[in-house]
C-alpha cells in the first residue's frame, strides 16, 4: 500500500476485487502518471476509460417504462435493490489502466473525478499510446484533455452533436409525435 502513498496528488488508495485503485487529484494526473511510469515501473498505459455516473444510485425503474418523451433506458434499474450503491464524488470518473511488464503482471488503476466541463491534462507526453485513447473518451464521453496535440472526434463523424456514451444522451425509442391532445 505504502508504495502508492507518494503518488503525486494521491487522494486515497483502494483495494477491491484484487485490484488497486489510486484516486488522484485531477490537477496532478500528468505528474501521477509520470511517477507511476518512472518510479513504480508501470511502463505501459493500456487503456483510458471514462464512466458517467449521472442518476447513479437514483430512484430507478424496473423494466421498460414509457414516459411522454419516449422511454429512457438510461435510468438505473434499482427497483427492488436491498441497498443502493454508494454515491460517487463527481459525475465522471476517468480511469487509467496501467501495466508493469514484470513478474506477476502488477496492474494499477489511476482514477480521477470530474464534473461536466472540467478539463484534465493530457498524458500523451508521458505515453504516446494515450493519443487515440484520449480522443475516444473525448468523442464518446465529452471529457476535454488539455494539451492534447490533436483533440478531434475519433469514432463519430466530425460534425456529430453530443457525446453518445453519456447517460443523458437520448436513447430508447422515439418521442410520440402525434398525440390525441394535439
Amino acid at each position: 500500500m505504502s508504495e502508492f502513498a507518494k503518488v503525486p496528488g494521491q487522494v486515497e488508495t483502494k483495494e477491491a476485487f484484487g485490484e488497486t485503485t489510486v484516486v488522484v487529484d485531477r490537477g496532478q494526473i500528468r505528474e501521477a502518471c509520470a511517477y507511476a511510469r518512472d518510479e513504480l515501473g508501470f511502463t505501459m498505459l493500456l487503456d483510458i476509460v471514462a464512466a458517467d455516473y449521472l442518476h447513479w444510485a437514483g430512484k430507478g425503474v424496473s423494466g421498460y417504462i414509457g414516459t411522454p418523451t419516449g422511454r429512457d433506458l438510461n435510468l438505473p434499474m434499482t427497483q427492488g435493490l436491498q441497498a443502493l450503491p454508494e454515491p460517487k464524488p463527481a459525475r465522471f470518473s476517468l480511469s487509467y489502466h496501467l501495466l508493469a511488464l514484470r513478474q506477476g503482471a502488477p496492474r494499477l488503476r489511476l482514477q480521477c473525478w470530474l464534473e461536466d466541463g472540467d478539463e484534465i491534462a493530457s498524458v500523451v507526453s508521458v505515453w504516446p499510446s494515450a493519443d487515440w485513447l484520449e480522443r475516444e473518451q473525448y468523442d464518446l464521453m465529452g471529457v476535454r484533455f488539455q494539451g492534447h496535440p490533436n483533440l478531434a472526434r475519433l469514432l463519430m463523424d466530425d460534425d456529430w452533436e453530443g457525446h453518445p456514451l453519456r447517460k443523458d444522451y437520448p436513447i430508447g425509442g422515439e418521442p410520440v409525435r402525434f398525440s390525441p391532445a394535439e
Binding site: 464512466a51 455516473y53 447513479w56 444510485a57 438505473p76 434499474m77 443502493l84 450503491p85
Partner: peptide
Amino acid sequence: DGGPKPWR
C-alpha cells in the same frame, strides 16, 4: 451498480 444491467 448492483442492478441487472451493466452501468458501464
